[in-house]
Amino acid sequence: MRGASAGTVEAALDAADPLPGTYGFAGELPDGRLVRDVLGRELCYVDPESGAWAHDPDGLPNAEPVPAGHVRELGTGATERAWRLPDPPADGERPVQRVRAALDRALAVDGEKPAVDGDGLAVDGDGLAVAFSGGVDSAVVASAVDAPLYVVGYGDCADVAAAEESAAAMGRGGDLRVVALSLDDVEAAVPEVARAIGRTNAMDVQIALPLYLVADAIAADGYDRVALGQGADELFGGYAKVANAPGDHRVDADTVRGARREVLRSLPDQLERDLRAVRAAGVEPVTPLVHDDVVRAALSLPGDWLVSGGTRKRALREAARDRLPDVVCEREKKAVQYGSLVAREVDRLARRAGFKRRLDDHVTKYVESRLES
């Protein structure tokens, strides 16, 4: 079992508790059942023909993921849902304080002891670096740990500028390490990342590339874990399609809370991509902002504490003010594939290879060609 003890998981099954106080878990219970937490924050695959299972699909000829929130009987292959993500009513009572307390629990450091959940997942300590793009998500994580901060980007990208400004504002400028990418770096990583995540579509590859490249630089410097701000956008209303609900065609919901709920359904798929990309570089991801306590606090937020006016992730930004300077809490950022300029450079590589924009999904075709060659 990865991420929690078997005892914790068994108790969560008995109590039908989808959020038992962990950072996520997956693996085999003593009775031979496979299990994966409700948000898919850990990975678990099974080969239905042989019955073999693993945390990584490599080596399983017919690997299928155990669905998030499900239990699978290894012997029979029977799979059933064990948990559903809670859908509590909006609670406007002290929303900032609730989020702040949840962050404190997820990120807490007691003196020099590493912060852990009930089963020992460290979010601080030796061997840890932080993927830091200068936005509130990664800055909240960085605020809790004494660790180097890594930002990756091409040329004069927005992410490097944001990281430099935020690190300076936090008094952490000396901790920041800029990983300046070349076009050759991006080109060489494309097939590696596509193989690692098991996907070739343009969006997934472009998102995974900067994660892989920053993790690769962290591994090269001798660190074996990377702390990430993953999940904050999904939990706290960071996407434009959530902020624009119900007027955005990308969501069906007619409220901000409903749109956030739709986005959360995509989190297991996104985390699978991100975790596989980071692990392919040789480091272990640490994702404290998807701790069960943070998830529980976020789920009960009213819509106007997710998005208010032009401010997305309102509750998270307000809760972070006791940790971060206002300029960091208020910083707006592009998605990592755009802020790092990696998406632009992959598009450039595709066109240079003869896959013109007039072709349908030209970047995906380019990625597929790299795997074939």
Results as ranks from 00 to 15, higher is better:
Arg72Gln: 10
Phe25Arg: 03
Val251Tyr: 09
Asp216Met: 04
Asp254Gly: 12
Trp53Gly: 01
Pro285Asp: 06
Arg314Pro: 00
Leu34Lys: 11
Lys241Trp: 12
Thr364Ile: 06
Pro57Asp: 14
Ala343Glu: 15
Asp104Thr: 03
Lys333Val: 13
Met1Glu: 13
Val145Tyr: 07
Leu176Trp: 01
Ser300Thr: 12
Arg260Ser: 15
Leu13Asp: 05
Ala106Thr: 08
Asp17Asn: 15
Pro57Trp: 00
Pro268Asp: 08
Arg260Ile: 00
Pro325Ala: 11
Gly258Asp: 15
Phe236Glu: 09
Asp185Ala: 03
Val290Pro: 03
Tyr239Leu: 09
Asp126Pro: 15
Ala4Asp: 14
Leu149His: 05
Ala106Arg: 09
Cys157Phe: 14
Ala188Glu: 13
Gly134Cys: 12
Cys329Val: 06
Asp56Lys: 01
Asp146Cys: 02
Arg100Trp: 00
Asp224Ile: 00
Gly92Tyr: 10
Ala142Trp: 06
Pro61Ile: 10
Val96Met: 04
Leu85Lys: 10
Glu93Cys: 02
Leu289Glu: 02
Ala4Met: 12
Leu34Trp: 03
Leu43Ile: 05
Pro86Ala: 13
Gly51His: 10
Val294Glu: 06
Val151Pro: 02
Tyr223Pro: 00
Val226Trp: 07
Glu49Thr: 07
Thr8Ile: 11
Asp293Arg: 14
Ser266Gln: 13
Val130Asn: 08
Gly118Ile: 02
Leu275Cys: 04
Ala350Arg: 12
Lys241Ala: 09
Gly21Gln: 14
Gly24Lys: 11
Pro288Val: 10
Pro246Lys: 06
Gly153Cys: 02
Gly238Asp: 03
Val152Arg: 06
Gly303Ser: 14
Thr79Asn: 06
Leu121Gly: 00
Val9Asn: 09
Trp83Leu: 09
Val96Leu: 04
Asp156Arg: 15
Leu213Gly: 04
Thr200Cys: 10
Leu271Gly: 02
Val96Gly: 08
Thr22Val: 08
Ala281Lys: 02
His291Phe: 10
Ala90Met: 06
Ala15Ile: 04
Tyr223Leu: 07
Arg323Glu: 07
His291Thr: 02
Gly21Cys: 10
Arg317Asn: 05
Ala4Gly: 12
Asp326His: 05
Ala353Lys: 05
Gly27Tyr: 03
Pro88Leu: 10
Arg321Gly: 11
Asp146Ser: 14
Arg199Glu: 11
Val123Glu: 03
Tyr23Phe: 15
Ala217Asp: 02
Ala259Cys: 12
Gly135Val: 03
Leu29Ser: 04
Leu267Asp: 05
Val328Asp: 04
Arg276Val: 08
Tyr154Asp: 07
Gly173Tyr: 01
Asp14Gly: 11
Leu121Glu: 15
Glu372Ser: 15
Ala16Met: 01
Val278Pro: 09
Met1Ser: 07
Leu121Cys: 05
Gly32Asp: 07
Ala343Val: 01
Ala115Lys: 03
